[in-house]
Amino acid sequence: MDIAVLVKQVPDTYSERKLRDDGTLDRAAADAVIDEIDSRGVEIALQLTEQHGGEVTVVTMGPDRATETLRKALAMGAHQAVHVVDDGLAGSDALQTSAALAAALKTLTFDLVITGNEASDGKSGTVPAMLAERLGLPSVSSARAVSVDGSTLSAEKIVDGGYAEVTASLPAVLSVSEKIAEPRYPNFKGIMAAKKKPLTTLGIAELGLENTGGAAAPCQVVSSSPKPPREAGQKVTDDGTGGSQLAAFLAAERLI
């Protein structure tokens, strides 16, 4: 089975993340990395193709340097990569991103599309469902386990208070939770091999996209402002009375 995995390059959550004055992400402010959730998507795709055969294509939309993220996924073992890149795509919202990614996916053959359940920068968590709707496919979100039997996808999906067992027929869109799998580390051989694997770039013209970019986005940022950071309050060292001092603080704050 052939699998397309969406991978996004995001600011490293270990560094400080910033917005520019126009409300768009300041991509220079933090190190850019493959979103951890997407590396889990690549991992489960590799496991599924190791079991069932087929190839893994990783797909990203982002500026030039997002190629680094594709190379990382190729080094893990993905077979080829597609980079949707065009200056005219800058500032896209979720609806526009899903249109571009859906158009790119239509240039491929696949039995399954795997995404993360939520990007760590945008946190919208809506791109997977938008893609499924655009592609006319069934979808499962927040999977913690998945298996494929013939043309049937079975998954355990995290729900409030537990999980649900669900099935859908392939092709389908699957978004994974962080419980799906631990991503493998690329080894030296993988990193060398990644340099030679095919990487296709696609732009607005090739994909036939309209109404692209921030100015045409259905969602417009009106204003944005940083919040002052929290300040540290009182700190005491427990000498046997720490619990009582804490209780006294909570009582003074009328919290107990």
Partner: peptide
């Protein structure tokens, strides 16, 4: 502690049960 309004440097197994007792006593 950088974001805590009140921090206790100590073992949670000492501090938390004492706090629980005090809360129950106040109730």
């Amino acid at each position: 502690f950088e974001i805590a309004d009140f921090g206790v440097v100590g073992d949670l197994f000492d501090v938390a049960p004492k706090l629980s007792e005090e809360v129950k006593a106040r109730k």
